[in-house]
């Protein structure tokens, strides 16, 4: 039974989908953990990172299984699919530069851990939803998706930035993939089941259209924003030579 599953090409396609979604949607957790613990005293910093990573992993496991059971309910697949479409479009948009009124990094251990957990809750939602959709209720795929995302919570997110810098199309492939997965979720919504059962071609047509939709909307919104991403100057200082022993 299990061997049969590994042998199908569909399984490996799903695995690739999940790796891609994990890679593109779990970048910022590691940064928040590192930054939230920055202002802690040296002795507590390691502890903060450890608890932060542990808590984040635990939270992600709970959220994943929560998401899967929620998606089994009628109508919620529709909501999930729409959310995924939006997540895909957001992936293609350039960064907003305006600063938000954010919280100052706490100098106490408890405060730092609280920041990490709350941040992880918010930042895991897109990843969890994406993986749950790509796994289509297959528990082993789901667990695989979780395992893949765990090192990415702890790792530096520079890897993703470097990948995108080297292969810019990854971001478009990712957007299209999220659209496709959203479309698959849409056709599996119980509400449309009688319809899809008759019109069988909808199984590939809807996901394909959703992928194109994400790319088109993302491109269009990005063009409207049209902000050139420039490097920000942070430090600029001149050091003069000491005048007394100038040669």
């Amino acid at each position: 039974m299990i061997m049969e599953m590994f042998a199908t090409s569909q399984f490996w396609v799903d695995v690739l989908k999940i790796i891609m979604i994990d890679l593109l949607l779990s970048g910022d957790n590691a940064v928040v953990i590192a930054l939230a613990c920055r202002n802690l005293p040296e002795a507590q910093r390691k502890k903060g990172i450890l608890f932060g990573v542990g808590g984040a992993i635990g939270l992600r496991i709970v959220l994943t299984f929560f998401a899967v059971s929620l998606l089994a309910l009628p109508y919620l697949k529709l909501v999930g699919a729409l959310l995924l479409l939006w997540i895909g479009v957001k992936l293609l948009l350039p960064e907003d530069e305006h600063g938000e009124d954010n919280i100052k990094a706490d100098t106490r251990l408890f405060g730092a851990i609280k920041t990490i957990i709350v941040a992880d809750f918010v930042m895991s939602l897109d990843n969890v939803l994406g993986v749950a959709a790509a796994a289509k209720g297959n528990v082993s795929l789901l667990i695989f998706g979780l395992l893949i995302s765990i090192p990415m919570i702890a790792w530096s997110s520079q890897l993703v930035l470097k990948l995108i810098d080297r292969f810019p199309f990854i971001i478009y492939a990712g957007g299209a993939l999220l659209g496709y997965v959203a479309g698959e979720m849409l056709v599996s919504e119980a509400l449309f089941a009688p319809f899809v059962a008759v019109q069988h071609y909808l199984h590939w047509l809807v996901p394909a259209c959703c992928a194109v939709l994400v790319l088109a909307v993302g491109k269009w919104l990005a063009a409207r924003k049209a902000v050139e991403s420039v490097a920000v100057n942070l430090v600029d200082e001149a050091i003069a030579a000491k005048p007394n022993n100038k040669h």
């Binding site: 928040v32 600063g99 954010n102 918010v122 520079q158 930035l161």
Partner: peptide, 17 residues
């Protein structure tokens, strides 16, 4: 420096940090 703090990170960590 790679701009690692993007997107949601700014919701939780202030620019100064």
């Amino acid at each position: 420096q790679w701009k690692v703090a993007v997107g949601n990170v700014k919701l939780f960590i202030n620019q100064e940090t």
